[in-house]
């Protein structure tokens, strides 16, 4: 029987998906002016950027579900990667907001939380580093365009640290079954928002 070689088709599919993920969109430099200086502007930045906030909360919930030991690693890995990404974005600023990748990142984290995925610590840290580098890079690029200095970037990383520490600490402390299910429901909400956002991006209204 003749077998069909599907490798070229799979390769073409992968290339198409990669191109889709890298589709550019103009970055919106929307830094909030708190009036307390650039550090606090950076702190506030996370809370007005929903994709960043969702990925930080989602990773906090996921780390909490994976246990205290995993959480201890992730609460430092994510802000460190975020800061590294911001520095990279500041040195090599890009006008691309990479919305496809940021949406996929928080959506995938939401799916993992909803599935109550018990990831190995190394994989969880790798996931946090990847998400941190990506979101931090976008942050760094937009912050440079808005005229924020490195103090603002440190502020953004500090707020990421606070959010992920509070979220993972809260989940680790949960004992009631219903509370753990509520965490999974929150994950499914994040995943649902990611799916809808992908649709908006296809439509060009992201």
């Amino acid at each position: 029987m003749r077998t069909i070689d599907r490798r070229p088709l799979a390769l073409a599919g992968c290339l198409f998906l990669a191109a889709l993920c890298l589709a550019p969109q103009t970055a919106h430099a929307h830094l909030v002016q708190t009036g307390f200086g650039t550090f606090y502007d950076g702190v506030a930045h996370l809370f007005i950027t929903p994709p960043d906030l969702l990925v930080a909360i989602g990773l906090g919930l996921l780390a909490g579900l994976c246990g205290a030991a995993a959480s201890r690693s992730v609460v430092f890995a994510l802000p460190a990667a975020w800061l590294a990404g911001e520095m990279a974005g500041a040195f090599f600023p890009s006008s691309l907001a990479l919305p496809w990748l940021t949406t996929v990142s928080f959506g995938a984290v939401g799916v993992l939380v909803a599935l109550n995925a018990n990831l190995p610590r190394a994989l969880l840290v790798a996931l946090a580093c990847g998400a941190g580098l990506l979101h931090g890079f976008v942050n760094g690029s937009t912050m440079v365009a808005a005229g924020t200095d490195r103090l603002g970037m440190i502020g953004a990383s500090v707020s990421v640290f606070l959010v992920i520490t509070l979220a993972s600490g809260l989940v680790v402390s949960l004992r009631a079954h219903w509370a753990q299910v509520a965490v999974r429901v929150a994950g499914s909400w994040i995943a649902a928002i990611g799916l809808l956002m992908l649709g908006w991006l296809v439509r060009g209204q992201g």
Binding site: V181, G187, S188, G194
Partner: peptide, 11 residues
Amino acid sequence: VAFPMVMAFGG
């Protein structure tokens, strides 16, 4: 847990 994700898929 399942409903929001499937609903979003429909959306």
